[in-house]
Structures are given as C-alpha cells and as structure tokens.
Design a protein around this nucleic acid. Structure first.
Length: 937
RNA sequence: GCAGAAGUGGUGGAAUUGGUAGACACGCUGGACUUAAAAUCCAGUGGACAGUAAUGUCCGUGCGGGUUCAAGUCCCGCCUUCUGUACCA
C-alpha cells in the first residue's frame, strides 16, 4: 500500500469542498479567530512558488486554531482592479473584465491544488459591482464627513453646517484647506448655495483640489508616490513629470497623529512600524513670518530649529512659491523667470539624478529678520519643495547641510551661532550638548531650553507659533484609468454631487477605447452612456446632458488602494446586499487576529487601510480603530537561477568547472533542465532554442555542470517554479511542508526544488508507520515510555513553534518524531492517532486520509489538539557535558536529583577529569544543575 | 545620506532566558538491492594535524576589541550584503 498523494489529495479536496468543511459561521459558542491573507492581484502569469508562502503559513495557523477550539474565519479573494489588465486591454482590445475573469479562474485552480482551508463562500473581488458598491459607499461617507480636531474624530458634515449657521467658522478647529477664509454666521447665510458648497469642500474628508501630481504621459495617468520608483513609473519605467490637475484627495493628514499613536497598540513588525513612522514624518518646530523689505508681503516658513534663528543669513523660496513673481526686482526678473521655467520643465527623474547639483537664483528682494531687523537676501532654489511646509525656508547655513552648501556655492555669508564649534568645513546639525552663541537672549542656552524660549518669544511678538508638521501629504484619490472603481459623483455647475446610496453601484461604463481621449480626458471620456439623470436616477447617454436634470458623471476612477482598504471588513458579511456588513457580523468578528502579507505594502495599503478603519470607527461603523492586532511579513522566495557558459564567439558551452580556461559569457538556462546535482539535461537544453540545436558541450567527468546564483524569481531569468508542477510531482502536502521548511517565515530565502525530496520522503516514512506487511493497520497495545516521550515532546515543540511562527522548526520536529518512531517500530494507535492531528495543519491531505483509515468518519480538521502532558518528559538523569575552561571534553551521566556537592565530588574523582587536569588543582568548579559542569584551572 | 534587517559547513538552515555550535534536510562519498537506472535502505560527512585504530589536540558562527567560569547569543568599534526611503527645512 503506497502513499498515493495524487489520489489522496484530489479526494480530500473534493470532500472539503462538498462538505464546506471550512465555512465559518457568523454565530458560534466558540471564540472567534480571524486569519487574513493579503488578497492577490490575479495577474496573467499565474502563481509561482513564492506566492503561496504566506497563505501556507496562515493556513497552518488557521487549521491549528480550529483544533484549539476556535471558530476560525480564513477568507480569500481578489484585488482585481489594476493596471496590467488595462494595459493588456489597450494592446489587444480585450475587455479587462474578461482577462480578469480568466486570470481568477487560473488562480483559483492553482490555489485549490494546495489544499487551503479558505472559506470561499466569502470570496470578494474588488472589480465586482456588488463589491465596489461598498467602496463607492465609503467614498460618499468620507465626502459627508469632516475632521474635528477638538474631538479628534471625523464627524458628519451636517454638524459643521449647523456650526456655520450659528457662529461661522472662526472658532472651528477642524482639518481644512490652508486657504480657507474666515466668515461669520451672517456671511454664511448670505452665501449662495454654490459658495457654501465650495467652502464645505475645503472641510470634507474627501475633496476636490488643484493638486500638483505625478503625471506619466506614457501611461496617460497620475501616479502615487509609491507607484514611482527612482523617478520613473514602477510599471514600464516611463518618465514622470509634475503637473497641476483637479483631483479628488483624501484628507489623511487629519489622521497623521492617530496613525502614529495607533502603532503602539498593534503587534506589527518593528521595521514596518518604522517605515510608517518615517513616512508620516512628524516634526516639531515653529511657523515664523518674515516681512519682505519694501513690500507689503510676508514670507511664512516652517522650521524645526527656531532656536537657530539668529543664524539666518538668507531665505529660499521654492520656484513655485506664489511670492516669487511679486517680489522679484526688475533687474532680476529675466533671470528668475528663466530659472522657474527651467525647473518646471525638469522631470522628477532629472531632479533625482542630480540631487547634488546646487542651483538657485537671487530675487533681488530682501526680507527683514524678525529679531535683528537686518536685511537678508531672498533666493529661489529647487531644493526647497513647494509641497512641504510653506514652500519657503529660513536658511541657517551654519546649522543645516543644504543651506550650508547653498551658501558656499553662492558665496553667502555663514554666521556662526554655536559656541566653540568650527563651521569652516561643514554645518553643525547636532542638537544635543551644544550651546547657542551670538543670539541675544538665547546665548548660552542648549537646544531644549532655547527651543522653549524662542517659541515663547515668537508667540509673544505675534510673528509665529509653535507647530507640529508632518511629511505625510493628503492622498490623491483620482486616477485617469479605465479599470478601477467609478466615482458615485456627477457635476452640477462644476460642483461635485454625490449619488444616493440606493442607486449604487454606479457600474463602470463600456468604452470603445481604453486610452485617454484625444483632448486629454481620462478613458471614461470615451463612454457614450455616462451621464446622470437626477429624475430617473440612472446612468444615461451623454447626449442627454442638459445642465438641468441630466449631468456629466466623473471621468476619473479610484486608485488601486481603494478596494483593498476595507475588504477585510467586507469578508465578515460578504454576501450582504443591504449593508457593507451587518452590525451583528462586525460585532462578532470585530477585527483581524492575524494578518499575513508582504512588507512592500508598508506605506501604501497598510497605511491607507488604517486610515479608513479609523474613519469607519469615528463614524460608528466598526468597533475598533485598528483592524489587525497582529501582522507578519512573510519574506520573499527568490529563485536559484542556472547559468551555462558560452565560449565567446562560438556555439560551444563549457561546464562550470572548466570555464576559467575559456573566455565565456554566462547565459541563463531554464531551471527545469537542471537536476539536484546541478547537472544540465543537455538534450532538453538543445531543444529549448533553435540556436542551441547544434551547440557543442565541453563536459567535466562526463557531465555538464551549471553555475547557480540566487536572484529574484522572474520569467526573464528562467528561474520561475510553478506550484502546479510541484503538486503534480510531489503533492500539495510536500509543497506545503517544503515551503515552511525552507527557513524562517519572515526571512527571504532561495528556492531550490531539489530540497523537496527531503520532505517527500518524510511523508512516505510517516505513511509507513501506519502500514504493517503492506496493509493499513495499527495496534491497540499500550504505548511505551519512549513512544509517549516522542509524542509529547513533539506536541510541546510544535505548539511553541506555531506560537512563534517558527514553522520551519516544526517541520524538523515532525521529521525527528517520525525518525524516532520508525526506530522504535511504533505502530500504536495511542501514538499514531494524535500524531495525525498535530501534523494536519501542515500536511492536511495525508492527515485526513490517515484519520479516516483509523476508522473515523468526520474530518480531522475539527478534532481537539492533543494535550501536552509534561510527565512523559520527566527525566531522572542527565548526560552532563563536562567542560574544562569552557571547552566541552566529555559527557557524564548523572542523576538529576544529585546535589551540587555530590556532582563535584563525582566529577573530580572521574578518571577523565584527572587526565584533563594532569595533576593541576582546579581553581573553581561551576555546576549548573541540569545544564553543565565547567572546571576552571 | 537616512532608517531597518541580516552575516553560522559545499547549500537551506538549527541552537526560546549566555551553558555540549552545526539539529533537521539537501548535496557529496562509500556500501546493499538491481542486468541497469530510478526508488528504497545502511554508514560517513565543519577544517587542520597526529595515530594502523579506538581516539586525541588545535582552529572554527563577517572583522577587531571587551565583559564572563562560559559568548553565535551581551557591550564597544568596524566591514559586507539585502530591503525601504530620498533635498521634509
């Protein structure tokens, strides 16, 4: 009776599906446990062995928790809106929905082969109108809300309107646009409906604004900062330029502090928290106004070092700063305009490429130092960013590296305001332990004291105030793409109007072409049926737009992160058509207990989703303001590429060991042509490409050995391994065990298919324990002490490992257990039955088969985990390592209850001890009972 | 530049609070079975040196110091690799 994994795995996969074994109920007497994976984007390439790593880990955890008596939800779905399907549509005309559907089918087939305990009845797809209806709904909620800084929470916009009506906006402390004017209740009432809407838009959590965006002409779309890598688009590597556009934005900055504070409450990896902290970039400082000499204007700056204000010797404005054109003197006008024009033209790529190049121009104007009254030059420089702070800096060359370099380059004075610090070669940006000098009332003060004092003085003088600034920017929410969620928005006189919830979803319209229109409108500009009829409440032809009852709909779509920002809550009640989720469902499931996914989402999805969760919490839709208690980042699985060496200029390949004798060029070979011993299947390689058909091979010891190198798994490197092939050849249980056995979950590690034979033969050995004379059979005899010891040692270790997410070591533990039981010739039910349960999370198919063969009729998945009993591990003696000066020399078996004194006597009397000491008297004998003996001397 | 993670045999990796470095595998070597291969099973496998052998000695966790009876583990200073980020005032 052989271990026939093909038959076994197909059988139990069908059984689980037919019996809905892993369907989670929304009510249960058991405690809940929610295990979540980051849902995949279904790409055309399908899954490679790196993708399921996190799913296998989460599945082990989910299955383990079921054994421990939890009502476990482990859902899966697809993040199915996205650029690749759209790019494919542009090239081929194939509708993205069709490609996406086909890709999902492939993914599902691949996932099903691995035996995950997913509850597919809760599947979500972000591109499904029944799903994105709720994404649209959340958008409306954000539009209908503002952020109250007093209460520190989002509130209904209707509350804000009430305040406006009774007292205007002067007393309101709410997150809003910088340019919001102050008005009274009287003013408000006199404003037209349109004016009122414009003001409200400055407060809404999602709002329209003229934003400087990363425009990618080649893709015809706006990209988020995290979609740009090294100044070019992440996809395609196209040039990105800065451009002003009217865009929807999300007021995530209102949540900056709470997003920081919340990190303390959640058990997420420290590197990920650090990345978010840095991204949010909180800095404490002050706003200070500088008067412009001979002009009725002020330059407001943000600085983290107001204590160095006496070191200011010039000011720098961003080229885009609104004052530039006003204050520039006639003599400098031409030069300044040329400079501004030149920087605007420079793409982000250019700017990145020469960060070190210093450029700038003097405006001819001067500012007045607020304390000394001295005149300081006002410059323009592109090292100052328009989008951070106020777009202007007070330059303190002695205390800031960039200001220093700028001053040196343009020969501007560098006054020193630090006591006893030499600044002739570099600026001094150290804060601690340095006293301020040449600074009037700040003289002799250290950083902290000087900060307090100067902020006080600035506030007293009325020229500024202490302020906390964040690097985080409001998130642009519009994309000029087709394959994304349409906004539930139409425009009346250019002002956005929300479509009522009962008419959702607003379904993506059909278009002829997926490219932007000729006049530069987004792809939805190609749609002919894309206007909103406010009488019939339906989408109608654009020809009917009359500006009275029928209006144009929004042409942008939502970004990739929209659909993924609340999907974890939708899983709780995925088939609800009335609400995003019922109160009962959200109150039962609450939040995610374990979330597993890649760290590449640190400052994208994982930040935006936290933001939306906090918003949902504020508005009373969800019970917690952090949605995932624990998060684990699985590491990447890299590929082990194979190289053949072609002799330069010839169609001849030389084996790795001989390549130093030739001038060779390494070429990637497909890894499937290479065996465990790095030997190339020459015939397969020859048949791979026409050009290799006639190639010659120079062998070593009759073999062609390839070179190997670890690289990212990618098609172009021919090192991609498909999980289907592994399942076909070794089975899903082997794949699952091997992926875990590769190394620590969070670490990046290389895939080498040859290693899988280890876990495969382990499964065969496991199987054999249950077989006697070729037949399935177990004995009902009482287990021996040694057998029980092995079992309980294994239970203990595996439970500890799962708690630590150390899945690689539990696979070792299983191997040790099976090796020991094989050596003991153990065939007892009392051992083998619990063994099947503890191995089930890792290798569920073989466990299920063994379990049923043992005579059970229900799934092993819901059996209780065996209870660890410490008594089986109690030892009466210990084999002590005996060390001399810390070096282990021999071992000595001694009873565990032996006293320290007796141990010392016994050890010193031992012949081997005498041999080691060679007559010397030991200076000291250290005995740690149960651990070690160390003799010093 | 900044932030983070990591450096252990030929390879992946193990060593939970400082206490026997190299578990468990892969690969390799030798053997059994076989016409042969695969599969399976058995033995060996960090390096150097000595010994016919059992065995013994020395060196070994990126490098240099330190703490300790004892360091892969703790402290100080470096080096290298990977990941993220990029003029944030």
């Amino acid at each position: 009776m052989e271990y026939n994994f093909r038959e076994i795995e197909a059988k139990w996969q069908k059984f689980w599906a037919d019996n809905q074994t892993f369907k989670a109920e929304n009510t249960s007497d058991k405690p809940k446990f929610y295990v979540l994976d980051m849902f995949p984007y279904p790409s055309g390439a399908g899954l490679h062995v790196g993708h399921p790593l996190g799913y296998i880990a989460s599945d082990i955890y989910a299955r383990y928790k079921r054994h421990k008596g939890f009502n476990v939800m482990h859902p899966q779905g697809y993040d199915s809106f996205g650029l690749p399907a759209e790019q494919y549509a542009i090239q081929t005309g194939q509708h993205p929905a069709i490609t996406t559907e086909a890709n999902i089918a492939t993914y599902r087939k691949q996932l099903d082969k691995i035996g995950f305990s997913f509850d597919w009845s809760r599947e979500v797809r972000t591109s499904d109108p029944n799903y994105y209806k709720w994404t649209q709904w959340i958008f409306i909620q954000l539009f209908e809300s503002y952020y109250c800084n007093e209460a520190n929470q989002a509130r209904a916009i209707s509350e804000l309107i009430q305040i406006f009506e009774t007292e205007g906006n002067s007393k309101i402390n709410a997150a809003c646009d910088e340019d919001t004017a102050v008005f009274s209740a009287e003013d408000w009432k006199n404003y037209s409906e349109e004016e009122q809407q414009k003001i409200l838009l400055k407060y809404r959590l999602t709002f329209l604004s003229e934003t400087e965006v990363n425009w990618c002409p080649a893709l015809g779309t706006v990209l988020a900062n995290d979609e740009i890598v090294n100044g070019v688009s992440e996809r395609g590597g196209h040039t990105v330029v800065r451009k002003k556009m009217k865009q929807w934005s999300m007021r995530i900055t209102a949540y900056a502090q709470r997003l920081l504070d919340g990190l303390d409450k959640i058990d997420w990896p420290q590197p990920l928290k650090d990345a978010q902290t840095y991204w949010i970039g909180r800095s404490e400082g002050a706003m200070v106004s500088f008067k412009v000499a001979d002009f009725d204007a002020e330059i407001e700056v943000f600085t983290t070092r107001p204590d160095t204000i006496y070191g200011v010797s010039f000011m720098t404005l961003a080229p885009e700063h609104e004052l530039v054109s006003k204050i520039t003197t006639p003599q400098q006008k031409e030069a300044v305009e040329a400079y501004v024009k030149a920087t605007a033209k420079r793409s982000e790529l250019d700017r990145m490429a020469d960060v070190k190049t210093i450029s700038g121009i003097f405006t001819g104007a001067y500012a007045l130092h607020p304390f000394t009254g001295e005149k300081v030059q006002i410059w323009i420089g592109d090292y100052v960013l328009a989008s951070y702070g106020t777009g202007a800096v007070m330059a303190v060359p002695c205390g800031d590296e960039r200001d220093y370099a700028f001053a040196k380059h343009f020969n501007i004075e560098i006054p020193n305001i630090f006591e006893g610090v030499d600044i002739s070669n570099e600026a001094c940006s150290t804060k601690e332990g340095i006293k301020i000098a040449n600074s009037d009332f700040l003289n002799g003060l250290t950083y902290k004291k000087a900060m307090k004092r100067i902020i006080y003085e600035i506030e007293q003088k009325g020229i500024g105030y202490g302020k906390i600034n964040y690097r985080l920017r409001d998130a642009v929410f519009s994309r000029q793409r087709y394959w994304g969620e349409p906004f539930p928005v139409y425009y009346k006189n250019g002002l956005p109007q929300m479509i009522s919830k009962k008419y959702l979803p607003i379904v993506l319209p059909e278009v002829e072409k997926y490219l932007p229109t000729e006049d530069g409108k987004p792809p939805l500009g190609n749609a002919t049926v894309w206007a909103w009829d406010t009488v019939k409440n339906e989408v109608v032809s654009i020809d009917l737009i009359n500006g009275e009852t029928i209006f144009p709909l929004e042409l942008n779509t939502m970004p990739g992160w929209a659909g993924s920002s609340q999907y974890f809550n939708r899983y709780m009640d995925a088939n609800n058509n009335e609400e995003m989720f019922s109160k009962e469902a959200i109150n039962y499931w609450q939040d995610v207990d374990l979330y597993i996914g890649g760290s590449e989402h640190a400052t994208g999805h994982l930040l935006y989703s936290r933001f939306w969760q906090k918003f949902m919490f504020d508005r009373g839709f969800v019970p917690t303001d952090e949605y995932a208690k624990k998060l684990i980042n699985q590491g990447m699985i890299t590929g082990t590429s194979a190289f053949v060496y072609r002799v330069e200029g010839e169609n001849k390949f030389v084996s790795k060991g001989l390549k130093s004798n030739f001038k060779v060029q390494p070429i990637h070979s497909d890894v499937s042509f290479v065996n465990a011993s790095d030997e190339l299947d020459i015939e397969a390689f020859k048949n791979w490409r026409e050009e290799y058909k006639e190639a010659e091979f120079i062998l070593e010891d009759g073999k062609y050995i390839v070179g190997r190198e670890v690289e990212k798994m990618s098609k172009s490197k021919y090192n991609v391994v498909n999980p289907d092939e592994i399942c076909e050849e070794y089975g899903a249980d082997s794949l699952r065990l091997f992926e875990m056995f590769l190394g620590p979950l969070e670490q990046s590690k290389p895939w080498k298919t040859s290693g899988i034979s280890g876990v495969y033969s382990f499964l065969k050995k496991l199987w054999k324990l249950y077989i006697v004379n070729g037949e399935f059979s177990v004995s009902d005899d009482a287990p021996t002490k040694d057998e029980l010891k092995t079992l309980h040692k294994t239970i203990k270790k595996v439970e500890e490992d799962i708690a630590n997410f150390s899945f690689n070591t539990s696979v070792s533990t299983f191997m040790i257990a099976v090796n020991e039981l094989t050596a003991l010739k153990c065939n007892k039910r009392a051992i083998l039955e619990p063994l099947a349960i503890i191995i089930e999370p890792y290798a569920p198919h073989i466990a299920e088969e063994l379990w049923h063969k043992l005579g059970h009729t229900s799934s092993v998945a819901t059996e209780d985990f065996p209870i660890f009993e410490a008594q089986h591990l109690v030892e009466s003696s210990k084999e002590y390592p005996v060390s001399f000066n810390g070096k282990m020399r021999f071992k000595l078996e001694l009873p565990l209850d032996m006293s320290k004194e007796d141990i010392e006597k016994t050890v010193l009397a031992h012949q081997k001890t005498q041999d080691q000491l060679q007559g010397r008297t030991p200076k000291k004998v250290i005995i740690v009972p149960g651990k070690i003996i160390n003799i010093v001397g």
